[in-house]
């Protein structure tokens, strides 16, 4: 019976399901191994000796981990707020207007960080901050990283917000105007509430991108500006303990949480 169903399912192509499972294994096996070994009570990073949370405890007592977490959160929150605000404004300015000359250029500039390989952005930003530090004696400290992250996060926040605005039925705004709402009232009462899922999704993406960034941060960060990814990078160049598994697992869980939230929000708009 099952076999008959398979032959009769015209969409089916033999072996494709197997390849799909292989892809999942490739993508998830390393992550799962990492997570499982973070609960290892022994001191070997890949020899399982027993279940325990000792390495999580060790991580939470680690002063460097603490300061890296603090730096990461300061940078990610600030960059996320700045980039989301800028992205919301830009999304309105590129969708709720008559097409204006230069709009395609504006669009290209906003999306530039997506097209340039990250390593180029990293060295260019490094050069730029070095120049203004040398020429004007300006050094924003951790602000340098925040600025670099904001630039990089803008297109990630911009895309879902713009998509949401474009999907939105313009007659809803017309209807509000028809019902005596001034443009500002219509924006506040209709456009903004309907835009919230897009903004939430954009915020989540901007946060992950900043939270996880390694390449740009590594080149731009000065001494004492260690973020969590940089902390991990420093750890793997030393003799490793399962503590790094625990910290990596925490980082992955944060990413997964934000991705899932963003994903669920963007899917729920259809219902």
């Amino acid at each position: 019976m099952a076999d008959l169903n398979k032959t009769l399912d015209l969409k089916r192509q033999a072996g494709f399901g197997t390849v799909a499972i292989i892809c999942l294994i490739i993508l998830y096996a390393p992550i799962l191994v990492l997570m499982i070994f973070s609960f290892n009570s022994g001191s070997q990073i890949t020899k399982f000796e027993g279940l325990g949370l000792s390495w999580y405890a060790a991580a939470f007592e680690n002063q460097e981990f603490y300061s890296a977490t603090k730096n990461t959160l300061i940078i990610s929150f600030t960059a996320t707020i700045f980039s989301t605000i800028a992205a919301v404004l830009a999304a309105i300015g590129t969708t709720r207007v008559k097409p204006w000359p230069g709009m395609s250029w504006a669009f290209m500039i906003i999306n530039l960080p997506l097209m340039v390989p990250e390593i180029i952005t990293a060295v260019a930003t490094l050069s730029f901050f070095a120049l203004i530090a040398g020429a004007f004696g300006l050094n924003f400290g951790i602000g340098n990283i925040i600025i670099a992250h904001t630039v990089f996060c803008i297109p990630f926040a911009y895309m879902p917000i713009k998509a949401r605005l474009e999907d939105m039925d313009l007659t809803l705004e017309n209807a509000a105007a028809d019902l005596y709402a001034s443009p500002w009232q219509a924006f506040k009462r209709i456009t903004l509430p309907l835009l919230m899922p897009g903004i939430a999704s954009g915020t989540a993406l901007a946060f992950i991108v900043s939270f996880d960034d390694f390449t740009i941060t590594q080149l731009v960060a000065g001494p004492g500006q260690t973020t969590l990814p940089l902390f991990i990078w420093n750890q793997i160049r030393r003799p490793m303990t399962p503590e790094i598994n625990a910290i990596s697992t925490i980082l992955l869980m944060v990413s997964i949480l934000f991705i899932s939230v963003s994903f669920i929000i963007s899917k729920s708009r259809k219902s």
């Binding site: 709720r96 709009m103 500039i109 906003i110 730029f128 803008i154 443009p183």
Partner: peptide, 29 residues
Amino acid sequence: MAVSRRSRFLTLPSLFIVFVFGVLPLVLI
């Protein structure tokens, strides 16, 4: 048109940030 033109300026913060800290560094290298 005035409303539409005013709305264009909403792109300025993004354009400013990306231009100064994204495009100029590329010009610099």
